[in-house]
Design a protein around this nucleic acid. Structure first.
Lengths: 182, 182
DNA sequence: AGATAAGTTGACGATCCGTCACGGAACTGT
DNA sequence: ACAGTTCCGTGACGGATCGTCAACTTATCT
């Protein structure tokens, strides 16, 4: 692990990561609103002033944590979509990815976090329209709608149980065929 | 206007409303995070201690303001749905209500505010399914999806312009007929 | 090794927090 | 109308957080 890095820079990364880790813990424990910069720095061996060498507010810590999470989530969320050869496959892939992540990570994964994959989703939708999987439509609106529906269903799956495969099929059909009666 | 109300109660309502109004102004000016209880009370003829006779935190002020807004919005958002005799009418009514409110109130109307009408929407969807306007489906997921799509489109209408009627038709068709190519 | 620059420390003044003893004004009953 | 009681606004208080900064430590440079 000794990557022969100038000691100054190594410690800098280390301190930054200490603050981020402490922030994650403190936010989880007290909630973001109740938490304070002092609480974060206290959960660290560092001094108060040092915090401001790395961040200017707890909001910046939150953003950094969110980006950290987002870059870990985005590839997982986009799984299987690029290879889909039908619209149904595309949608199923999206929904089951979301459901898997939600059950896997339990709570501590809000809709705001899922939103990390929104741009990816829209880009993939554009590509899919190009491939003829979907008709021409407002992919931005569709992406937002898919995400909201996925989040709603995932929440209920986690709270009240249920079969993810069946839920995937139902919500896939909702978007595939629309709401009109047969 | 002299409703022969015990002076004590009249002043109480008055003070509460003063704080709410001040809160609205302060939040709009500085943003919720930056704002402080002291800022709110300073925008009022009252003293610091008085604030805590009415609210226990600025968060409570935020909630009260949200409810105030929600109860003003909900009837407007639900307009025209109960009378809809087809699925298309129902969806058009919903989308055009959202678009009208958004253009009318400009900014200062976030998705969080629209969420006030989410339960109403789901209830109306349930009723509509009962009337046969839609096939049996997950109305909760659909409501979330409709709201997210409406919010996305409304944002773009407000920012980049566009014809609300045309947007309504496009997004209505998205949900009515689904995403499959013809 | 000595000089320099980077970065940490902890204390400081300013501010905010929620509380509470005080006082005055509104209500009550006579 | 008057005194007694209750209600509630007031502003100051101790405790805590805020962001800053001069002094110090230590890595890096020559």
């Amino acid at each position: 692990m000794d990557t022969t890095l100038p000691k100054r820079q190594r410690i800098k990364q280390q301190n930054r990561q200490s603050i981020l880790d402490a922030g994650r813990r403190v936010f989880a424990e007290q909630g973001y609103d109740a938490a304070t910069v002092r609480d974060i720095i206290r959960a660290t061996p560092l001094a108060a002033g040092t915090f401001y060498n790395y961040f200017t507010s707890k909001e910046e810590v939150r953003q950094a944590l969110e980006e950290e999470l987002a870059s870990a989530l985005r590839p997982r969320l986009a799984e299987g979509r690029a290879e889909a050869s039908t619209g149904e496959e595309f949608l199923s892939a999206f929904f089951s990815s979301v459901f898997a992540l939600r059950t896997e990570r339990g709570a501590g994964l809000e809709e705001a976090d899922l939103r990390a994959g929104l741009d990816d989703l829209r880009a993939d939708l554009d590509a899919a329209v190009g491939r003829g999987l979907f008709r021409a439509l407002d992919t931005a609106a569709l992406a937002a709608a898919l995400l909201a529906a996925a989040d709603d269903v995932a929440n209920r799956l986690r709270r009240h149980g249920g079969d993810p495969a069946q839920a995937t099929e139902a919500v896939t059909r909702l978007f595939l065929a629309g709401v009109q009666p047969p």
